[in-house]
Simulated scan of single mutants.
Amino acid sequence: MHGLGNDFVIIDARAPELAEQLNMPAEKAAAIANRNSGIGCDQLIILKPSDKADVRMQIYNADGGEVEACGNATRCVVKLLGDGTSIETDGGMLSGQATDTGAIVDMGEPRFDWNAIPLAYAMDTLHMPVGWEDLQDPAAVNVGNPHVIFFVDDSNSVELDRLGPMIEVDPLFPERVNVNVAHVHEGEIHLRVWERGVGLTRACGTGACATAVAALKRGLVESPVNVHLPGGTLILSWQDGEPIMMQGPTTYVFSGEANWDDFG
C-alpha cells in the first residue's frame, strides 16, 4: 500500500502462531525494503495481536531500524482493517475511520518538552536557538517520533538531500530526527521531508502533523490546514490540548507471497 507515494510492505501476522514465529532483525527488514534485491518500500509494517487495541503495528524504516510512528502507514492500516480500528504503536495509541478514498486518523497529542523530543539539553522548542547554515530558528515536535521543522521562504530551494542527513544525526538529537522544511503560501503549507532512516520521501504523515502543529503554534496558519507534499495533500486539524487529526488518501497496490528465507 502507499499513502501519497510513501509506500509500505505490510505483513499480516495477527494470528498468534505467526506473531510468535516472526523474527524481524534489522538485516531482514532492510533486505525486504531494498528496491533492487527485495520487495521494495519506504517502511516495512508488521501487524501483530494486541491486548490493548485491535492490532499492534511495528514499523521498520528502509535501513532496518525500528521506529515509533508513521502517519501514512497508520492511514493505510485503518483503510485495510476497516472503520474504528485502534492501533497500538511504540509511539502511543492511535485510531481512525476509513473514508471512500483513504482514512481520517487520530494521531494523538503532540509533545513539546525538550526531553520528550528528545533533545540533548534543555531549550525552547518553538524557537530553537540553533541552526545549520541557512536553516535557522527551527521548532521541534514529537508526534510519536521526533521532528525538527524549519520555516523558509521557499522549501523547494533548500538542499535537503545534503542538509537532511547532516541534521538527522546531529548530537543535539540523541535518537536522530526527521527533518522538515516548509513554506506557507496563501494559508497553506508546502513541505519537504528528510525522513530518519529513509531519506527524501514523497510524503511523511508524521512530518505533516509536526509541521502543521508548529505552524499553528507560531500563528502562521489556521486549522484545518492543507499540507502539500511532493506526493499529494493531507488535511491537518489541531487545537492546543487536543489530538492531531489527519485526513488523506491511501492506495492498495497489490498482495503477494515471498520466500522468507530469500531475505537473509
Rank of each mutant, 00 (worst) to 15 (best):
N23M: 12
V198D: 02
G64K: 13
T99V: 11
N6C: 06
E188M: 08
T233S: 05
P49I: 11
T125I: 04
W114A: 10
K28C: 00
D134E: 14
F173P: 05
S223V: 01
A30I: 03
L160C: 10
A29G: 08
V130W: 13
W238G: 04
H147T: 08
F151W: 09
E168D: 07
L135Y: 02
M166V: 15
S86G: 11
E257R: 14
E66C: 05
I189Q: 00
D262F: 12
A182E: 01
E195T: 06
M245Q: 15
E27I: 00
E175Y: 00
L236D: 02
G64R: 11
G164W: 01
R14I: 04
A215L: 09
P165T: 05
N36K: 11
I149M: 08
P243R: 13
V227P: 04
D63M: 04
D54P: 00
W114R: 11
E168R: 11
V9Y: 09
L119Q: 11
Q97C: 05
N142D: 12
A19D: 13
L200P: 10
L229H: 03
Q239H: 13
G164R: 04
G144C: 09
W238T: 06
H183M: 01
H2N: 13
S86A: 13
I32C: 06
E168W: 03
Q58W: 02
T74K: 05
P25L: 02
E195D: 03
R111Q: 14
S95K: 15
M107Y: 06
W194I: 07
I149F: 02
P249M: 06
H190F: 14
S86Q: 14
E88S: 06
Q43A: 07
T206F: 05
I10Q: 10
N115Y: 09
E20M: 12
D113N: 14
H183A: 01
E168G: 06
S223M: 01
V177S: 09
